[in-house]
Design a binder for these strands. Structure first.
Lengths: 249, 249
DNA sequence: CGGATCTTTGACTACGTTCAATTATTGTGG
DNA sequence: CCACAATAATTGAACGTAGTCAAAGATCCG
């Protein structure tokens, strides 16, 4: 399987790329590498010259506050693009880390922007990716700001399930979750202890089980109810056909 | 003062636009209108054909959860652009409302995208705006997820102060704040009651006073300490000159 | 096998919510 | 311009969700 495939697979859900775009991307590919769990790929405040596609493994975008507390902004799954987009940003405004062993492809962001100049459809693909990130961040704000720990956890599980399903990494009854409870806590704005108790409650309610790195969804309907979940924000931003044709060269 | 000025003023902080871009924007201008306080400008889930610049007045982007609770994602200040960006989204993934009487300019998003096709520098301006929104959302997540009510409030006050200062709507010792405590609560993920108590604490600590629609910053240094504030995320994404020249036609 | 990391549980604390009532403040029609 | 209604701010008391501190199991991994 050639490099860049995961990303192309992912992006194609919203916007099928033509041969021209695919080829250009392949050429652009700077290098692929693998990152150890815990390793920072982008560091908050430092210059950022590359964008990255996670081909395998999980990562997260996060920020630290003064006293060392961490807030995870978003989990990064296989097929996701992170890092520099466009030529606007020179310093990263957050960090990106690998949470598991991960395989990445790096694209030099300057060249990527250059390429976007010539290929509007490719540009649209990245725009789509940005839009999706924005939508997820917004949902996360609602989550943390206005939902209880219980609802939040249910919501996150459903979001991950849906996102993973889109790249073939989940089946109907669950998915592999390579995250510690501390990572969940950092994403949900909770403490580890409370995450643990929340998971127990969910388990005892008979809706979902998390154990041994595996999430088993027992009663999805109940979970959706708890979370007030509507996955629309995860793909509503797909390209309408009317718009698509405009990009066809 | 011609329409679009606030926006041009705002956008120029990051990216001075040339005559060509200015003229194109002026032509594009669909209509300007004013909105009553509380009026929805964009409704979550509905089609969205326009982008809007707030020329005067405050607004917010928000989402509702099932039971009616509201989470404000972000405040919209004079000079800010909101709404459709690019051609990717057809249905809004959040609502936008006027919080005070507001004057807006509407741009048909399709035409805007069209225009962006021809004017890379204009496109970059909107990209900059999106980036900034993203940065603010991220900071809001950290705020709500990992900071206490006290810290959060201090942080919001400093953010608003800085943003308003950039458009000449604040001076060193404070700014006019046309928000009710309920709006603050909805933005910070708190209840009205707790916002009230938090404001009292801040007042009693001698750092900042909020009364009669006016924020008076007494001790900015102390406030920055409380909030762990670094305003970098609000303008770090300005265009470096090296990049700027590339856009000069 | 043994150390480190992660999970789980208990007891206690506290930040923030809820419910309720009172006091400003604002806006509007008579 | 006042009266009255509606909205907003403020405070108290009781409650509950989530945090803190601490310790014991479980699991992972060299």
């Amino acid at each position: 399987m050639p490099n860049g495939n995961r990303f192309l697979q992912r992006i194609s859900v919203a916007l099928p790329l033509g041969r021209k775009e695919r080829e250009a991307l392949e050429e652009l590919l700077a290098h692929s590498s693998s990152a150890e769990p815990g390793r920072d790929i982008v560091v908050d405040g430092e210059a950022i010259d590359y964008g990255y596609v996670f081909e395998r493994g999980w990562g997260c975008r996060y920020k630290l506050v003064e006293d060392g507390r961490r807030q995870i902004l978003n989990f990064v799954l296989p097929g996701d693009y992170v890092g520099a987009s466009g030529r606007l940003v020179q310093a990263a405004d957050h960090s990106i880390a690998a949470l598991t062993r991960a395989e990445l492809i790096a694209f030099p962001s300057a060249a990527l922007a250059e390429l976007g100049e010539r290929l509007p459809r490719l540009r649209a693909a990245f725009e789509w990716s940005n839009r999706r990130d924005l939508a997820m961040l917004q949902e996360r704000i609602v989550d943390i700001g206005r939902r209880s720990a219980y609802e939040r956890m249910a919501h996150l599980i459903l979001e991950l399930h849906q996102r993973l399903a889109l790249v073939g990494l989940a089946d109907d009854d669950g998915f592999d979750l390579p995250l510690t409870q501390e990572m969940l806590a950092d994403a949900l704005g909770l403490t580890v202890v409370h995450v643990n108790r929340t998971l127990r409650r969910l388990r005892e309610s008979g809706t979902v089980t998390i154990a041994a790195g595996r999430v088993t969804i027992v009663d999805r309907g109940a979970l959706v109810d708890i979370a007030d979940f509507d996955g629309g924000y995860l793909h509503q931003m797909s390209m309408p056909e009317k718009t698509l044709v405009r990009f066809t060269n």
